[in-house]
Structure formats: C-alpha cells, structure tokens
C-alpha cells in the first residue's frame, strides 16, 4: 500500500516536472526563434546558431532571475499579512 502511494506521488511529481520543463522549452524556442532567425532560409546559418545558443543561456538566466524575484516577493508578502 505504502509502495503504491509512493508510486502515485512519484508519477504525479515527474509529470509536473516534465510539463514545467516542456513549457520552458516551448517559450525559449519561441522567443529565440523570434530574435535569432529573422529571415528563415534553407538552413540555420552559423551566426543564427551562435545567437540561438546565447539566447538559450540568457532565457534560462532570465527565468532564474524572475523565479527568485517572484518567490522572494510572495514570501515577504505572506509574512506581512
């Protein structure tokens, strides 16, 4: 019984983590394609790939900055109220 409960919890958790990672990838692809591939041609050029690689790192950085700000702000507000 306990083993089955843990299996249910584990499966929900990994589904949630997957959905979150998937959403992050979708947003990153959308934003970076918009910024880096302005005129789609017959293949990705070297400069487009350089732009995409940097954009990926910057979007992850922005995601971390925003996560930290948001979590610290709502923790603060919960303490005050």
């Amino acid at each position: 019984m306990a083993a089955r409960k843990d299996a249910v919890i584990k499966s929900i958790r990994s589904e949630m983590a997957l959905a979150n990672a998937q959403e992050l990838m979708n947003k990153t692809n959308e934003k970076c394609f918009a910024k880096c591939v302005t005129k789609p041609s017959t293949s990705l050029s070297g400069s487009e790939e350089t732009c995409l690689a940097r954009c990926l790192d910057r979007y992850m950085e922005a995601f971390n900055i925003v996560s930290r700000s948001y979590i610290s702000r709502i923790s603060k507000e919960r303490l005050e109220h």
Binding site: N29, F33, C36, V37, P40, S41, L52, L56
Partner: peptide
C-alpha cells in the same frame, strides 16, 4: 527552421 531550432536547443 523552427523545427531545426527546437532540435538545436535540445542538443545544446
């Protein structure tokens, strides 16, 4: 190119 972008990002 959009699908190439997705594959490129996963590879990175």
């Amino acid at each position: 190119r959009f699908l190439d972008t997705s594959l490129f990002m996963v590879k990175k």
